[in-house]
Design a protein around this nucleic acid. Structure first.
Lengths: 130, 130
DNA sequence: GTTGACGTTTACGTTAACGTAAACGTCAAT
DNA sequence: ATTGACGTTTACGTTAACGTAAACGTCAAC
């Protein structure tokens, strides 16, 4: 279960923690979203790998594709060479921001709609108590 | 193009307005999300149909499946008979609310992450100006 | 009367994101 | 030495949400 190095994880540990299957984790690796090390054949995950996985799943909850999640994750690292690329990166970051703000507005409207639905349903319930 | 009744829409009008294809709209009908009337063979959409379509697309932007969107849309109508069903409906509405709140938190974190990415990228740009 | 623009149905194709199963290796425990 | 828990690779299957194309009807315009 627990390891000597303490801050490394097995594939099943991560799977259990996040409520996904090992198949899913290997699939993410296949798609280039994770690149764990190997102890022999066996995959060994660092805390950084774990964070990346967390980000992927967060993206999933927001309806992002794996490609989109990869893009967002890659935005965090500064390794992108020349000035032109950096400027384009800024644009892509901004685009994502706009998208997230749109989602915020969508959520607000849906929550309002749900409040409405609750009110209507409770009203219908009161009708039944007559 | 425009109709005599004014508040009815053709399939291509809706497609253009929302930036989707007619195929998509017919697909939604196939899945039971829309039930337009017919003038002969031709589909005729009411303003209510248009609203439903809008809700579907809003759900899409939030990563909802068509089934989920259908569920949310159906929550708005009070036609669901008995007390037990109404109480279960309230629970489902509440569950959706929780999910949306989770998405709100996810968005906040992602926006913070993007701010971080922007700062780092701009820092990298300043390096290049040396 | 044929050419477009628009509509229809039917049906096969495609992509993403895994599920599921087979077939195998490893290592500690019985 | 075999069982069980865990890991591996390879590969075919599945579902959702459409795309794409074929083949046809309709109706106004030239």
């Amino acid at each position: 279960m627990s390891n000597t190095t303490v801050d490394s994880y097995s594939i099943s540990e991560l799977a259990q923690e996040f409520g996904i299957t090992t198949r899913t984790i290997r699939f993410y690796e296949d798609k280039g979203l994770l690149t764990p090390q190997r102890r022999g054949q066996t995959r060994v995950y660092t805390p950084e790998d774990r964070v990346r996985l967390k980000l992927i799943l967060r993206g999933k909850r927001l309806g992002f594709s794996l490609d989109e999640s990869r893009e967002i994750i890659d935005m965090y690292d500064p390794a992108h060479g020349n000035v032109d690329q950096l400027k384009r990166l800024l644009d892509r970051i901004d685009a994502k921001r706009q998208q997230l703000r749109q989602q915020q507005r969508d959520i607000e409207k849906m929550l309002a709609q749900l409040d409405d639905a609750t009110a209507r349903t409770e009203a219908a319930l009161k009708e039944h108590s007559n």
